[in-house]
Simulated assay, not measured.
Amino acid sequence: MKNKFFIIVFLLGVWQSTIFAQTGGEEKVSKKEEYKPMDPLAPSRAAFYTTVVPGLGQIYNKKYWKLPLVYAGIGVPVYFWADNQRNYDRYRNEYKKRLQGIRDEDDSTFGRLDDQRLLDGQNFYRRNRDLSVVVTLGFYILSIVDANVDAHLMQFNVNDRLTIKPAFEFNSIDNTPQQYQYAVNIQYRF
């Protein structure tokens, strides 16, 4: 129990020290903060750019680190679509040859398969091909939504007037050193 207490106190202390390290401690917030006018069309513009060219909305939002994720999320399912389409065509062409009465027993891939196995292979690769299309569309739509939401959040005003700080207070009623009360202070200054 004591180990858990010390771990929690240590983690909260590190978290609190990083909060104070970011603010500089001695700097005073100027009463007149920088005013950036909100662009109401920025989210729709970012979504439009991503719709036209995937990843362009992330570039517009200056979130360059998301580009590999967007292209991997769209490119990997496209690769699997092409691979499944190729295998589907191979099984379909072999089945068509069998219907015409052409059967090659020496073929290393299809020589030992019967007609039902060829149909099962076609169904398997067709199902995976279609699933790849759905996953590709899902990542494409997700990249559009990401660009839109990210453009909205870039306009969200976060300043030093809104703070969340953990607080450790000694319990003055019991006067025992192990009785700390934990709290989170949320302050908003007008």
Rank of each mutant, 00 (worst) to 15 (best):
K165R: 15
N123F: 02
W65D: 02
N157K: 15
N87Q: 15
N159R: 08
N171Q: 04
M1H: 14
L99P: 00
D115H: 09
F5W: 06
I186E: 06
D39E: 15
T51D: 04
Q155D: 01
G57R: 14
F190P: 00
T51W: 15
R127W: 08
D130N: 15
Q122G: 02
V145L: 13
R117H: 13
K66M: 08
Y60E: 12
R189K: 14
I7M: 09
D150S: 14
P37R: 11
S143L: 13
Y182G: 03
D160A: 13
S44C: 09
K36P: 00
P166S: 06
G101I: 08
S17M: 14
D107C: 07
S172K: 09
F139V: 01
R129D: 05
Q100I: 03
Q181C: 03
V135E: 03
K28V: 09
G25Q: 14
R92H: 13
V145C: 06
R90L: 15
P40T: 08
I59W: 14
E105A: 13
V158F: 09
D89N: 12
T51P: 03
I102C: 04
N3V: 02
Y140A: 03
Q181M: 12
Y35V: 04
Y180M: 05
M38P: 01
R117D: 14
Y79P: 01
E94K: 05
G111Y: 14
R127S: 10
N128Y: 11
V9Q: 05
Y71L: 04
T23W: 06
N3P: 00
G24F: 09
F190I: 03
K36H: 11
D107H: 11
T23F: 07
G13N: 10
L99D: 07
F6P: 00
V158T: 06
I74H: 04
V145Y: 11
Y180V: 03
M154Q: 15
A42F: 13
F48E: 05
M38C: 02
E27S: 12
T163I: 07
F48Y: 12
P43V: 12
F110M: 09
F10K: 00
A151G: 07
K63R: 13
K97F: 10
Q181G: 10
G24Y: 09
A72H: 02
Y35H: 07
V52M: 13
N3I: 04
Y188P: 02
Y79C: 01
N123T: 03
Q181L: 13
A183N: 11
F170Y: 08
Q122D: 05
L137N: 14
A183P: 04
Y88T: 00
H152F: 12
G13K: 03
Q116K: 15
I141T: 09
G55I: 06
V70W: 05
E94L: 05
Y125V: 01
V133T: 11
A46V: 09
L162V: 06
Q181D: 14
P68Y: 09
D104A: 06
N148R: 07
T109H: 09
W65N: 06
K97N: 15
V78D: 03
D114M: 09
F156D: 06
I7T: 08
P177M: 10
I144D: 04
E33S: 10
A21H: 05
F5K: 04
A46H: 10
I8G: 02
N148G: 01
L11N: 03
W15T: 00
G138A: 13
L131M: 07
R92M: 11
L118V: 00
A47I: 05
P166V: 02
Y140M: 06
D115T: 11
D104Q: 07
R86L: 09
K97H: 12
L118S: 01
W81N: 02
P43L: 14
E34P: 01
